Amino acid sequence: DRIFMTRTEALEFLLKAHQTAVDKIGHPSHKQTPADHAAIEALDRLLLDVRARRVDQFQINASAAQIIVTD
């Protein structure tokens, strides 16, 4: 599946995904793992790359739809 978004929409989408990941590892019942921190770092890099126009398409994980940034 493909989803087309403007750059602004894609950045909002990534910010929400980032916040969800941060909230998940901050929850008291969740045991933090290196994979959790790696996922947040990957989202940080992706946010910067989309914002800087170095990336025009991405996929958060293998089961997610491919996001295509349109400007």
Rank of each mutant, 00 (worst) to 15 (best):
A39S: 09
D23K: 12
P34W: 10
M5F: 03
V69M: 06
Q32L: 14
I60T: 04
V22L: 13
F58D: 00
H18D: 00
T8K: 15
R53Y: 11
A21W: 13
T6F: 02
T20D: 14
E9L: 05
R51F: 11
D71I: 14
R45G: 04
I60V: 08
F58C: 01
D44Q: 15
I67S: 00
I67M: 03
I67D: 00
A64H: 09
S63A: 11
R2K: 13
R54T: 07
F58M: 01
I67L: 02
V55P: 00
E12V: 08
P34D: 11
T20R: 13
H27P: 07
V50G: 00
Q59Y: 11
F58T: 00
Q66P: 07
V22T: 10
G26N: 15
S29M: 09
A42Q: 11
E9I: 03
M5I: 02
L43G: 00
L46H: 01
H27I: 08
V22K: 11
K31R: 08
L48T: 13
D56T: 15
I68R: 03
A10K: 00
R51E: 11
H30V: 07
D23H: 08
L48A: 13
T6L: 03
I68A: 03
S63G: 12
A65H: 08
I40C: 03
L48H: 15
M5D: 00
E12G: 06
L11T: 03
A52M: 14
F58S: 00
L47Y: 09
Q66C: 08
P34S: 09
L47H: 03
F4N: 03
P28G: 10
R7F: 09
V50L: 05
D1Y: 03
K31P: 11
Q32S: 14
Q19F: 05
A64V: 09
P34I: 08
V22E: 04
K31Q: 12
S29K: 08
A64P: 07
R54D: 03
D1P: 12
H30F: 08
F4W: 07
N61K: 06
I25S: 06
A62R: 08
L48Q: 15
M5L: 07
S63W: 11
Q59S: 09
L46M: 04
M5K: 02
Q59V: 07
Q66H: 12
E41A: 14
L11C: 05
D56V: 13
T6I: 02
I67E: 00
H18F: 15
H37D: 09
A62C: 06
R54N: 06
R45W: 03
V69R: 01
D49N: 07
S63N: 13
I25W: 06
E9C: 07
A52S: 11
L11V: 10
A42F: 14
A35T: 07
K24V: 08
R53E: 10
I25K: 04
A38V: 10
L46C: 02
R7K: 03
T8Q: 14
V55L: 08
Q57L: 07
R45D: 03
P34N: 08
Q59F: 09
Q66V: 15
S29R: 06
D36S: 05
A10N: 00
A52K: 09
L14D: 00
F13V: 05
T8I: 13
T8G: 10
G26T: 14
E41I: 12
V69G: 01
I40T: 03
L11Y: 07
E12A: 14
K24P: 03
A64L: 09
D44M: 15
D44C: 09
L14T: 00
A64D: 12
V55C: 05
D71S: 06
D71W: 03
T70M: 14
I25V: 10
V50E: 00
K16D: 06
F13C: 04
A42Y: 15
F13D: 00
H37E: 11
R7D: 01
H30P: 05
L48F: 06
L46W: 02
H30R: 06
I60S: 03
T6N: 06
V55G: 01
I60N: 01
A52D: 12
L47G: 01
K31I: 13
R54H: 06
Q66R: 13
F4C: 06
V22I: 11
V69I: 15
L11G: 01
F13A: 04
D49V: 03
A39F: 15
I60E: 02
L15D: 04
T6V: 02
E41V: 12
I3E: 02
R54A: 05
A17R: 04
D36M: 08
R2V: 15
D23V: 08
F13S: 02
I68Y: 11
P34C: 05
A38W: 11
D23A: 14
T70Q: 10
A39L: 15
I60W: 07
A62L: 10
N61H: 13
R45Y: 03
Q57I: 14
V22Y: 05
S63D: 11
A17G: 02
I40K: 04
I67Y: 08
I68T: 07
L43T: 01
R53L: 09
M5A: 01
A52G: 07
A39R: 09
R45S: 05
Q19W: 05
Q66L: 15
I67Q: 00
P28D: 12
R53P: 01
V50W: 01
V69D: 03
A21I: 14
T8V: 14
F4P: 03
G26M: 15
E41D: 10
N61D: 11
V55T: 07
E9M: 08
K16Q: 09
R51M: 14
H27S: 14
Q66I: 15
D23C: 08
Q19G: 05
A62N: 12
A35C: 04
I40S: 02
Q19M: 08
K24N: 09
D71T: 07
Q57T: 14
A52P: 00
D49P: 00
V50A: 01
N61F: 11
Q66S: 09
F58G: 00
Q32P: 15
K31M: 13
A52L: 14
F4R: 05
G26K: 15
D36P: 03
L43V: 03
D44I: 15
R45P: 00
D23G: 10
A35Q: 12
D1H: 04
L15P: 00
V22G: 03
T8P: 09
